[in-house]
Design a binder for these strands. Structure first.
Lengths: 290, 290
DNA sequence: CCAAAAGTGTTACCTTTACACCCATGA
DNA sequence: TCATGGGTGTAAAGGTAACACTTTTGG
């Protein structure tokens, strides 16, 4: 059992900044670090993934995930204190103008030959975008007609992709399918206010299963995480779009409607918690799942 | 919407190997990449975590997770094709002499100041070790009496740790607790043959809950993942240890024992699959869990 | 011999599933 | 008016939780 990495460990950090030539010199080679985002968008019915057309070699003209390098120092060599999450957030903003969206790292991809230029290790993220922002982004990229190089693709009909991005997308979908079973992440694919059908569509799109409408609704309400939104409090969305199948923010008809109307809900992050005491013994419902 | 990272992207890869000075020169600074392992060991009753006492600054004398740098090229500058997983596996072997154990990355830690020497980003892994290897390792480190710097710690009584390793361990425990609910990872904390009590102890240690013995057993068998191991086929373990509370490999008393005896099981990775047809409609049992 | 572990089954309760009809809305 | 979406309840089946006594094992 040799536990002595002394030489390697100490020497590894031999490095300096050559201020004159503006270069960084290391005793040992370093891989480059990037953040790549698999952005899932929900239009009310289907799941989409946002891809960007590459304008540069390698893989010029192919589609790729938004992403970029983690910056460790500014042009003067001064260190920058941004994490890999910050990097992902920055790329989202720069490449797609998205901000305030759910963002979560899920896996590191480090195959030796995944980038032909140099050794590049990437931290892959998923981002989740609701119908509002989905349509807003779609409208923006459409307006940007000369070089509209960002596009929402149906998650089941993706184009050939650069680097190992097809593999990253595949794993992102698996990760999302796993997460939605055990955590309330679906709400990040919805607007503040949404219909039960939209919620169900999210689940069906991600899991690939279909559910009984009534049972789904009952189960969803039983979680205590949903709050029925009074019709009067529906925010009116001035946004007009072209081909919207499921409007999540219906225009209110001067809020008089004595008849039945579609119900809307919002997500209540913490359940009413009227629970009384905690028992010592836990449920074994989930044991050996999957 | 500015999607043009052209300059940055192309310039980022300016780099070369100065063969004469044996140095690596980059136009942009690169972070160092490491793999750190949270090794969970199960002694038949409790969960332990393996830590290593640092022999070098920084944090000399403190306890830390086994881990090390991803090597990107050999001393002659020739590229090495090892992934971050390979790096974790290598460190496990070098620092603890463990091999063939369950290993899985779970999160990247990239805080700016997590290493005082240079910018270091780490990919954190969990490793799972069953009682056999647990005891073997404990014996080895005990024999190594002059500088035994590797130790199993009770997961609930850990010493102060170097770097941000306390945070990494905390998240590793959360990750493991999440995983065990949805995937059959518990078997990686057990030997090939184990008792039902051991299996239950794993679940109780990780989830922090207690279960009814009979219900647990029935549920476990219903999964179809367990195979009862005939007493005759019990492998005899020549390993002798000092203070073993739950021997997972009982010494056979010349395999004659007309009376009842403790049952043992092994993990059957794929259930008998005598299932007939798949229905279109899926279960909604798991919706909104957590 | 004693203490602690481990084998075993049944019942009540709760959750899940399957299923049909009517009304509202918009084309 | 016709097609589609969406609101609503009940009963049967299946799964979970609670529970006690006896035998075995090891000290």
């Amino acid at each position: 059992m040799k536990r002595d990495n002394a030489t390697y460990n100490s020497a590894y950090h031999d490095k300096h900044y050559d201020a004159e030539r503006k270069e960084y010199v290391y005793k040992y080679p370093h891989a480059a670090l990037t953040a790549d985002c698999v952005i899932f968008g929900f239009d009310g019915k289907d799941l989409k993934i946002l891809l960007i057309e590459r304008g540069l070699e390698p893989y010029k003209g192919m589609w790729a995930l938004p992403g970029g390098f983690m910056k460790v120092a500014d042009p003067n060599g001064k260190p920058i204190d941004l994490t890999i999450e910050d990097t992902a957030r920055r790329e989202l903003k720069e490449e797609t103008n998205l901000s305030g969206v759910y963002l979560r790292q899920f896996k590191v991809f480090s195959r030796y030959d995944r980038d032909p230029r140099e050794r590049v290790v990437t931290v892959a993220f998923i981002a989740l975008v609701g119908p509002d922002k989905y349509r807003k982004l779609q409208a923006e990229t459409k307006a940007d007609d000369d070089a509209s190089n960002a596009l929402w693709w149906n998650e089941n009909a993706l184009p050939p992709m650069a680097f190992d991005h097809a593999e990253i997308v595949k794993e992102a979908k698996e990760f999302l399918a796993e997460q939605i079973r055990i955590k309330p992440v679906a709400f990040n694919l919805l607007d503040d206010t949404f219909s039960m059908t939209e919620l169900q569509n999210v689940y069906e799109a991600i899991t690939g299963q279909s559910y009984d409408r009534r049972n789904f609704q009952r189960k969803a309400m039983q979680t205590g995480m949903l709050e029925e939104r009074p019709a009067a409090s529906l925010p009116s969305s001035p946004l007009t779009t072209d081909n919207v199948l499921f409007s999540s923010m219906p225009v209110e008809k001067s809020n008089i409607s004595p008849r039945k109307r579609k119900k809307f809900f919002s997500f209540r992050s913490q359940p009413p918690t009227i629970d009384s005491d905690e028992s010592e013994e836990g449920s074994i419902k989930d044991i050996f799942n999957y």
